[in-house]
């Protein structure tokens, strides 16, 4: 699987993503600077965590207007895989590649800890390697991760089985609507989630629950 990681000014999980992708796929991803208007020929584009453009205006708002995002949108329109993690999820909602918005955490505090999640949907290239309802632990690290969408959109997401991950009971760290931690696009080729699967692909890092996500993608493409 060929992959690329987009690097925005103040991305800070781009190298975590690179390390995880290199370890999982055996090939280093292309690191693409936000001003590059063209993407290399890849299967997967990762929008990493961080604080792109210093979170100015709104998290992900400036990044959504950057040159490279036009190519990312075109890649997604063609059915290419896109994974947005944390700030990457915020960029995806600001770019309208995913519905809804990520708002200030309900408790107004930055949360940085491992959280329990439930894999809510396994019918996707990202989650096929998990069992339905499987409990996994991914770390979160964000101040603005409270997922919001109007009731109609939330009903549609649930009706179309597009809620890929939910915070487990009692684990919602930010007040997200319906405990939503990650959602899929209509065509199911774009996944955005606040927790960090790329930080749990090696026992040395405290867990391997994220491996199945990358493994699913690799198997889907081979």
């Amino acid at each position: 699987m060929k992959s690329a990681v987009i690097v925005f000014p103040a991305s800070n999980c781009d190298r975590d993503a690179k390390t995880a992708l290199t370890q999982m796929t055996g090939k280093a991803p292309a690191m693409v600077w936000h001003q590059d208007s063209e993407l290399p020929d890849v299967d997967l584009v990762v929008l990493p965590g961080g604080f792109s453009y210093g979170d100015y205006l709104r998290c992900g708002a400036m990044a959504s207007q950057s040159a490279v995002m036009k190519s990312v949108k075109a890649h997604a329109d063609k059915g290419g895989m896109v994974l947005g993690i944390c700030n990457g999820f915020q960029v995806l909602t600001e770019s309208h590649l995913l519905p809804g918005a990520l708002m200030r955490n309900a408790a107004l505090k930055f949360v940085c800890k491992p959280v329990g999640l439930e894999v809510n949907e396994t019918q996707s290239a990202f989650t096929r390697g998990y069992e339905n309802g499987q409990r996994v632990t991914f770390p979160v690290a964000h101040g603005e991760g409270s997922y919001f969408a109007d009731e109609e959109t939330l009903d549609r997401l649930e009706g179309e089985n597009r809620v890929a991950f939910r915070y487990a009971k009692g684990e919602n760290p930010n007040g997200s609507a319906r405990n939503i931690a990650g959602i899929l696009s209509e065509k199911r080729n774009v996944l955005g989630l606040m927790p960090h699967p790329e930080r749990v692909v090696d026992d040395v890092l405290g867990g391997t629950d994220g491996r199945a996500l990358f493994q699913s993608l690799i198997e889907n493409l081979s």
């Binding site: 708002a61 600001e94 519905p99 809804g100 918005a101 708002m103 109007d150």
Partner: peptide, 8 residues
């Protein structure tokens, strides 16, 4: 386009 996120 930019200044407001009309979702919220």
């Amino acid at each position: 386009k930019l200044l407001a996120n009309t979702v919220i």
